[in-house]
Design a protein around this nucleic acid. Structure first.
Lengths: 140, 140
DNA sequence: ATTAGTGCAAACTATTTGCAATAAG
DNA sequence: CTTATTGCAAATAGTTTGCACTAAT
């Protein structure tokens, strides 16, 4: 559990990337939250802790993290991507009202290794609907 | 088969929308292709057939089509959305090399009606990998 | 006739990039 | 020291919007 951070840092180091304070703080933040933040949300959240942080660095860092596979990028909304530190396959539920993204633990499908001659490398399963808290709030 | 267009036109009419040449030509194009085009691709493809067509109209039209449910919008790439006239649930395979999107006929999961207290309305299953034609081209 | 729809350009949002300054190894 | 990384601002890409003009009913 606690070693998730170290594991990811090790991957970065192994691939020849420096450990900088921006990288550390962004990675720690992603590991601490279940909120699947956007690049901008990460920037806003962390600029108080690391005032020198720039948006370009957040984008660069997230790109590096995605490329090295230590963070997953999910495309669930119009023009913006969301990020999560969880890299094991799991289903996402996206509320069409509050736009929050929830991790679903129940496995609803097994990702096949090939489909119709195509070689499958990974898969995304997105379920859209009304989340439990929006439903409780009733019809607004 | 041939009535797919008429069915969708009927929906538009029923919801009180006019039938314009841009709407007709965009809908016909979407029904004729399996390529899951972006808004820009649609615009480029159709501006020769309908020279007065503007990009804004393509966007407005696609938005209307999505809202009325006669077209599906899929978020598979960074900052751009793709569109398809097929509205029945099916799996998508996206090639990470050529970025083409293929419809998969094999059903790999049943979308549940609820998950963990959340009400599910629809689902997307995306498989990513190397498509058969990119694989045949070998390592380029 | 009326009102919805179009086309243009400008606005906006998310993201990328060039480059000089900075910090990690 | 040496080179990757950062931060800024400018550039770019996709999409939306305001408004006068046009076309569908």
């Amino acid at each position: 559990m606690k070693s998730a951070l170290n594991e990811k840092l090790k991957v970065l180091k192994q691939k020849g990337h420096f450990l900088t304070s921006s990288r550390l703080i962004i990675l720690e933040y992603l590991l601490s939250t279940k909120s699947h933040p956007t690049a901008d949300e990460i920037y806003l959240k962390l600029k108080s802790k690391l005032p020198s942080l720039s948006k370009a660095t957040v984008y660069n860092t997230l790109k590096l993290f995605s490329e090295t596979g230590i963070v997953r990028e999910i495309k669930v909304e119009k023009g913006k991507n969301r990020f999560e530190a969880r890299t094991d396959p799991h289903v996402h539920f996206i509320c069409i009202k509050c736009h929050r993204v929830h991790d679903i633990e129940k496995q609803i499908a097994k990702i096949p290794k090939t489909v119709e001659e195509h070689k499958v490398m990974f898969g995304d399963i997105f379920l859209y609907g009304i989340c439990s808290s929006c439903r409780k709030e009733g019809s607004s």
